[in-house]
Write a protein that binds this DNA or RNA. Structure first.
Length: 107
DNA sequence: GACATGACGGCAC
DNA sequence: AGTGCCGCCATGT
C-alpha cells in the first residue's frame, strides 16, 4: 500500500468515463493522470484491474490496435465486446479512431 | 539494490 | 512508410 495507489484509482475512474461505443488510448489516459510518458503504467494498471467494474476493453493503443486482447478470457473477447457496443473496425482489425476515439472533457 | 519486463509512445534512421 | 531505440515508472526476481 503506497500513496501512489491514487494512480490506479485515477486510471480506473477515467476508464469508467469512456462510454460504450467509444475507446481511448493508453497515452491519453496516462496524460490525464499527469504521466504523459508512462503509458506503460496504464496498461499495467488495467491488467491488475477488475474487469467486472472497469471497461478495460475500451482502451487501445495509439494505432487503434487491440494490444491487450491477450489478457481477456479469449483472444477475441475484447473485439467482440467492442463490436457489441457498436465499435467498428478497419479491414486490418484496428479500431477506427476517427469515429470512436473518446475525448475527455476538462470537467 | 541492480536488472529485466511490460495491455505504450515519440522520434530518429 | 516501416523499423528500431530509448524513455517512462511500478513490480518481481
Amino acid at each position: 500500500m503506497t500513496a501512489s495507489m491514487t494512480f490506479y484509482e485515477k486510471v480506473y475512474e477515467l476508464v469508467r468515463r469512456i462510454p460504450p461505443g467509444k475507446v481511448s488510448t493508453y497515452g491519453i489516459i496516462a496524460e490525464q493522470v499527469s504521466m504523459r510518458s508512462a503509458a506503460r503504467m496504464v496498461g499495467w494498471a488495467l491488467n491488475k484491474a477488475d474487469l467486472a467494474t472497469v471497461p478495460a476493453h475500451r482502451v487501445v493503443n495509439r494505432n487503434g490496435e487491440l494490444t491487450g486482447k491477450g489478457h481477456f478470457f479469449t483472444p477475441d473477447t475484447m473485439r467482440r465486446m467492442l463490436e457489441t457496443e457498436g465499435v467498428t473496425f478497419r479491414p486490418d482489425g484496428s479500431v477506427n479512431l476517427e469515429r470512436h476515439l473518446f475525448r475527455f472533457n476538462g470537467s
